[in-house]
Amino acid sequence: MALLGAIVNGLCIIGGTLIGRFLSRIPDRIKETVMMGIGLSVTILGIQMGLKSEQFLIVIFSLVIGAVIGEWLDIDKALNKVGNWLEEKVGTSEGGGVAKGFVTATLIFVIGAMAIIGALDSGIRGNHSVLYTKSIIDGFTSLILATTLGIGVLFSFIPVVLYEGSIALFATQIEKWIPAQLMDSFILEMTATGGLMIVAIGLNLLGITAIRVANLLPAILVVAILTALLYRFL
């Protein structure tokens, strides 16, 4: 079921928010240790995905070219500007408590490599492990956010499910138009490239790095182009 990962993600956000509403204060030590555990888990998942590549030069070139494109477009900065603008607008509006929680949580849960990579993996391979991992992260994050931003965080599950579900459903149709051999090659290299991005997310969660993962997202498109060229001419 292509939508399973997206649905689980939405349920974890709902569950985390409801639990957070009953907790007035979570000790910082617990927050830190749990987040470290999640960061380690994400890093291992990314390493496992990264090792699946059969043409690692494609992964390298894709990340390099994708990083250049991403930095040139400055996707990370643009997304942060949008988030800050929305938060500023919502925060100044009357009765903006619920709306602020909704907008803030939506931006956190939707913007990121794991949502795209996980949804593609769900649709193409029926593998929901990335979205399951993201669900755990989002569930804990929603719990924390709900203690400060309120019940508005809960409603962020709607755009999250719609966003990830749409990508997953679109991905299920790709195989009808692309040869099986090319699709298999793309899946392997996309998985490996996405895996390295997920490693970056894990390292960021651990506080080891501050990698602008959003600026690496164009690498997924570059993978598709390079694998298609390799299939066509070699």
Score class of each variant (00 low, 15 high):
Ile151Val: 14
Ile151Arg: 08
Gly152Lys: 10
Gly152Ala: 12
Ser156Glu: 08
Ser156Pro: 12
Ser156Ile: 12
Phe157Thr: 10
Phe157Met: 13
Phe157Cys: 14
Ile158Thr: 07
Ile158His: 07
Ile158Gln: 07
Pro159Asn: 11
Val160Tyr: 03
Leu162Met: 14
Leu162Tyr: 03
Tyr163Cys: 09
Tyr163Gly: 01
Tyr163Glu: 06
Gly165Phe: 01
Ser166Ala: 13
Ser166Asn: 03
Ser166Arg: 07
Ile167Leu: 02
Ile167Gln: 07
Ala168Ser: 01
Ala168Cys: 04
Leu169Asn: 01
Leu169Phe: 03
Leu169Gly: 01
Leu169Tyr: 05
Phe170Trp: 02
Ala171Lys: 13
Ala171His: 10
Ala171Cys: 02
Ala171Arg: 12
Thr172Cys: 05
Ile174Asp: 03
Glu175Ala: 15
Lys176Ser: 09
Lys176Pro: 06
Trp177Arg: 14
Ile178Trp: 05
Ile178Gly: 02
Ile178Glu: 09
Pro179Ile: 09
Pro179Arg: 14
Ala180Trp: 08
Ala180Gly: 01
Ala180Thr: 11
Leu182Asp: 05
Met183Gly: 14
Asp184Arg: 15
Asp184Val: 11
Ile187Gln: 11
Leu188Thr: 10
Glu189Arg: 10
Glu189Pro: 12
Glu189Ala: 05
Glu189His: 10
Met190Gln: 09
Thr191Ile: 12
Thr191Pro: 11
Thr191Gln: 06
Ala192Cys: 01
Gly194Lys: 13
Gly195Leu: 02
Gly195Gln: 02
Leu196His: 07
Met197Ile: 08
Met197Pro: 05
Met197Ser: 08
Met197Leu: 15
Ile198Met: 01
Val199Arg: 08
Ala200Met: 12
Ala200Trp: 02
Ala200Ser: 15
Ile201Gly: 00
Ile201Asn: 08
Ile201Ser: 03
Leu203Ile: 06
Asn204Trp: 00
Leu205Ile: 15
Leu206Pro: 07
Gly207Met: 04
Gly207Pro: 02
